[in-house]
Design a protein around this nucleic acid. Structure first.
Lengths: 139, 139
DNA sequence: CGAAATTAAATTGTACACAATTTAATTTAA
DNA sequence: TTAAATTAAATTGTGTACAATTTAATTTCG
């Protein structure tokens, strides 16, 4: 029987390396916006939805409050978002964009293109990759 | 012009989610071996090579000494590896398997299969995914 | 040779990521 | 209706990641 305990046999390892590589490619681009990659993901959601609870963000980004709470506090310090406990249901905390946060979208418009270039990806590969992963994650 | 600042448009986000999902699927399997996923990767390398410097591990796993040094110290505490500074070149630290570390390979043999099952992946999807990523990372 | 450059690990500091627990508020069901 | 169950955030603790710096050893070169 074949021994599959070899790094070269692993499928998961390339995924793990690629994910890190992508974040590393984003880093210099996002540095100019004073954002980390997870913080950028939060901004993507808020640029679409304006206001979200911590849980809603967590569901969309697959992150729990243990990760999001301190992350959002850092974004609050940078004045990109506000954090307000709901009056109607005090368990909820609403995260909303500040003016500064909204304005940041302008500076971010070029990032997707820049990233594509810096990773040197064809849109074919990209679409292909996205389709497989989406298929796998859907299960 | 199309606005690509939408989470659903992102290619990188699914990669990021998949990588986390894979590690989460590994977690309960690796817990029985008292290993984290990055520690498991170190073991994969050492099961193949017996002895490696910190740098050699770092090149294979794409991790730097800032990550590896504390990680390897934890593995040393668990008595899976030894850390010994080279006599010939005292800048190098050799990482080697202990008997306990070698023995752990037995318990790990079933992990690749178990993971495939827990992620519910067809070998087609898997191979496809691996090929695309390898192609992308090669650039 | 011996100073300068390079290399390898370790260290320091910041920021995730997640399990497990805690706290507080809201639902639910007896 | 109020005690039990559930829910939402926050907290605590462990373990990556990685940039930047430091320390010490080895090479390289003038």
């Amino acid at each position: 029987m074949k021994d599959s305990l070899h790094l070269s046999e692993q499928v998961c390892f390339p995924v793990y390396v690629l994910a890190k590589e992508i974040i590393n490619q984003y880093r210099p681009l996002l540095e100019e916006l004073e954002l980390t990659y997870p913080q950028y993901l939060v901004m993507l959601v808020l640029w679409e939805h304006e206001e979200q609870t911590v849980n809603q963000l967590g569901e969309k980004l697959k992150l729990d409050s243990g990760t999001l709470t301190p992350l959002l506090k850092r974004m609050e310090v940078k004045e990109f978002v506000t954090r307000n406990r709901s009056k109607i249901d005090e368990r909820l905390v609403h995260i909303a964009l500040t003016q500064k946060g909204k304005a940041l979208k302008e500076k971010a418009t070029c990032i997707p293109t820049q990233l594509m270039e810096s990773m040197n990806l064809s849109s074919d590969d990209l679409l292909n990759l996205k389709n497989i992963i989406t298929k796998i994650l859907k299960k």
